[in-house]
Amino acid sequence: MATSEQIKSLIRSHCDNDRERFLTIALQVAAHEAKKGHDGIAHDIRSLVDKAKSGSGKVIPFNREFSDLVLASSPSTQISELILAREKCDRIQRIILEYRQQDKLKKHGLGNRKKILLAGPPGTGKTLTASVLASELKLPLFTILMDKLVTKFMGETSAKLRQIFDLIRARRGVYLFDEFDAIGAERGRENDVGEMRRVLNSFLQLIEQEKSDSLIIAATNNAKILDHALFRRFDDILYYDLPTTDEIIRLIKNRLCEFKPAKMSLKTTIMAAEKLSHAEIGQACDDAIKAAILSDRQKVTATDLKAMLKERRSAYGYSSS
């Protein structure tokens, strides 16, 4: 049987939502049982730990009160999956490092970066970045469903927003406000609505007062329409762009993996991928892989890949290359 200290540590790590520590202690329990000659129990525990480690993207059960406002998940996305400029990856690594060593910063009266604004075109890696941060920090990812948050009834959206911030304080995690411009648009715009001004004012006050250990991430496709007062409320602002030539090559190689053809004309492939986002290039690679599988081929042909890339371009009205 596990020692009383191990049982207490398991309960503490579960309550703290510290998945990595929980699994580590579980392995310690397995080792303890093996030493006592309980090989069957030790084997079962190790198998359960291996199964837990191999699982990805599992949905976390949620209280009914928040189930219509927040989508909770446990991503396992590694930072190596982010194909971005080195400078941007370094800044994401800095957020991770500061979070992990926040106690060291607190001793000097400093805080870690915990309120992050991500801005850029759709499909360029903003949501993926939130998944990476959650995965690397062993935290759950809570995505705020903006279509459920914003309502037409006076005062209801602000009330729901306060509920979200209550949750942020009560349950440590990475909180993603996707399509943030739904509530963060600049006050005084031509199509401005008085109710949304009040919602934005509420958000400004709530994020200013927020002192929890959670990470708050706001993502927008159009930073230009955000209210200027928002920018100083964030500890870091990362701007995303369509992939560069080098990133296109890395994206294709990473996505095709063992299906990558031995020879490929990079010049014509890059031309076919111009103006496409990271996500669109990834989807085109997946389509090319599926074509190879259905044709009983072990490699993607350059012709198939270019055709899939051009198909994506034509869907957005881009001229063929």
Results as ranks from 00 to 15, higher is better:
1 M>V: 12
3 T>V: 01
8 K>D: 15
9 S>Q: 10
11 I>A: 08
15 C>K: 11
17 N>Y: 11
18 D>F: 01
22 F>S: 06
23 L>P: 08
26 A>M: 07
27 L>H: 05
30 A>V: 02
31 A>R: 11
34 A>M: 05
36 K>W: 11
42 A>T: 05
43 H>R: 15
45 I>E: 01
46 R>N: 13
48 L>H: 12
54 S>K: 15
55 G>Y: 08
57 G>M: 04
58 K>A: 15
60 I>W: 10
69 L>A: 09
70 V>D: 10
74 S>V: 10
77 T>Q: 06
78 Q>W: 06
80 S>W: 02
82 L>K: 02
84 L>V: 08
85 A>Y: 03
85 A>S: 09
87 E>K: 13
89 C>L: 14
90 D>R: 12
93 Q>S: 14
96 I>W: 04
98 E>Q: 09
100 R>M: 12
100 R>H: 13
101 Q>M: 10
106 K>V: 07
107 K>M: 12
110 L>I: 09
111 G>W: 10
112 N>M: 02
114 K>Y: 13
114 K>D: 13
118 L>Y: 00
121 P>D: 02
121 P>L: 01
125 G>F: 00
126 K>V: 07
127 T>I: 00
128 L>G: 05
132 V>G: 00
132 V>S: 04
136 E>D: 03
137 L>M: 08
138 K>T: 04
139 L>A: 07
144 I>C: 06
147 D>H: 09
148 K>F: 14
149 L>T: 07
150 V>R: 03
155 G>D: 03
157 T>E: 05
157 T>F: 06
165 F>E: 04
165 F>A: 09
169 R>S: 14
170 A>W: 00
171 R>H: 11
172 R>M: 01
174 V>L: 05
174 V>D: 04
176 L>S: 03
186 E>N: 09
187 R>K: 05
189 R>K: 08
194 G>V: 01
197 R>Q: 15
203 F>D: 02
207 I>G: 08
210 E>A: 10
210 E>N: 14
210 E>M: 09
211 K>M: 12
211 K>I: 07
211 K>W: 03
216 I>W: 07
219 A>E: 00
224 K>L: 11
229 A>T: 05
229 A>W: 09
233 R>N: 01
236 D>L: 14
238 L>R: 12
239 Y>L: 09
240 Y>N: 06
251 L>T: 13
253 K>V: 09
255 R>K: 13
256 L>N: 03
262 A>Y: 14
263 K>S: 15
263 K>R: 14
270 I>S: 10
271 M>P: 05
276 L>P: 04
278 H>I: 06
278 H>R: 11
280 E>R: 08
282 G>F: 07
285 C>L: 00
286 D>G: 13
286 D>S: 15
287 D>R: 13
294 L>M: 15
301 T>W: 03
302 A>E: 12
303 T>Q: 09
306 K>H: 00
308 M>E: 05
309 L>A: 04
309 L>M: 02
311 E>N: 14
313 R>F: 01
314 S>A: 14
315 A>T: 14
316 Y>V: 06
316 Y>P: 10
320 S>P: 10
